[in-house]
């Protein structure tokens, strides 16, 4: 027994000396030691954090800005839970009487209003019951409400709408028209996650146009589906994982139609921050002529 305790607390005879040596150990670490500790630690963020930035410009050739953008980011984290929440929308309006901007603006506000109303209590109160409606249903009903509003209040106009609801590490996309969402991966691959609802894309898919003809097609901006147009509207709604260590990018055709994917990746990877990346993307589109309104959202999950 005595041996056991001796082993446990060390030599019995010299407790004072023991204390002294302890005091020596608590001396400040040298820079060298600190660096060694840091490099030995696998440095990870405890909390998954969503960050986002937005860039927009009317472009060089248009008088009005018919694009609308909405970005909403929130991180709620505590001992129990960590739910990054983000809502990102790009809408590109069209139609006479300046109704295009009415349509795109109404669409993003109604979408965002509906979605935040649904999620508010779950994110910021302490919910006792889980949300009864699914994320895809929330997106679908919000698109329908925006659709009906635009039909009623701005008849004849329409708008594209590409929205991403990020919750945790998944994103639920609602998409109508030819704005686009991309997953941008660290290896430089830029994967479109939406499919344009445009005449030119459809004709290309059918094989009526080859890539060259498609690029020079005179009616590139004719949509076959748009929010606010037609009796029934079927938005593409689906859920995909947020790109691992990568970016979500949503943009209007004023960006993707003007600068190449490789340039987009180069600009993003060279910029020190997301905000600068957005600014540089808009600048590049303007430098290339800025034929249309430019809108871009970049989002990233850190941690």
């Amino acid at each position: 027994m005595a041996d056991f305790f001796r082993k446990l607390i060390g030599s019995k005879e010299e407790p004072a000396k023991q204390k002294q040596s302890n005091a020596v150990i608590t001396a400040p670490l040298s820079d060298h030691q600190i660096n060694a500790i840091i490099t030995n630690q696998n440095f990870t963020y405890e909390v998954k954090q969503l960050v986002a930035a937005v860039g927009q410009s009317v472009g060089k050739q248009r008088e009005h800005n018919e694009d609308s953008v909405l970005a909403l980011t929130s991180t709620v984290s505590g001992s129990a839970d960590n739910v990054p929440f983000g809502l990102y929308i790009v809408a590109d309006g069209m139609g006479g009487h300046q109704f295009g901007e009415v349509a795109s603006n109404a669409a993003i506000r109604i979408m965002a209003g509906n979605i935040t109303k649904r999620f508010h209590s779950y994110l910021y109160n302490l919910p006792t019951q889980s949300l009864q409606i699914s994320l895809q249903e929330v997106m679908e009903s919000s698109v329908m409400e925006a659709h009906q509003y635009v039909q009623r209040e701005a008849p004849g106009s329409g708008t594209t709408l590409t929205a991403a609801l990020v919750l945790g590490q998944q994103m639920t996309i609602a998409h109508v028209g030819d704005s686009r969402a991309y997953s941008i991966h660290p290896d430089g691959s830029i994967v479109p996650i939406t499919r344009d609802h445009s005449l030119v894309k459809r004709l290309e898919e059918l094989g009526h146009l080859n890539k060259y003809e498609a690029e020079n097609f005179p009616h590139r901006n004719v949509l076959i589906r748009a929010l606010g147009q037609g009796e029934s509207l079927e938005a593409d709604i689906f859920t995909v994982p947020f790109p691992n260590n990568g970016y979500l990018m949503i943009c209007s055709d004023g960006l993707w139609g003007v600068i190449s994917e490789s340039d987009i990746f180069r600009i993003i990877s060279q910029a020190p921050t997301l905000h600068r990346a957005c600014g540089n993307l808009v600048e590049a589109a303007n430098a290339a002529g800025g034929p249309d309104n430019i809108s871009v959202i970049l989002a990233q999950l850190i941690g």
Partner: peptide, 14 residues
């Protein structure tokens, strides 16, 4: 028939 986010239990679709 429903899909839930494995990490946090949000209903993705029903």
């Amino acid at each position: 028939l429903f899909a839930l986010d494995a990490k946090n239990g949000w209903a993705i679709w029903k």
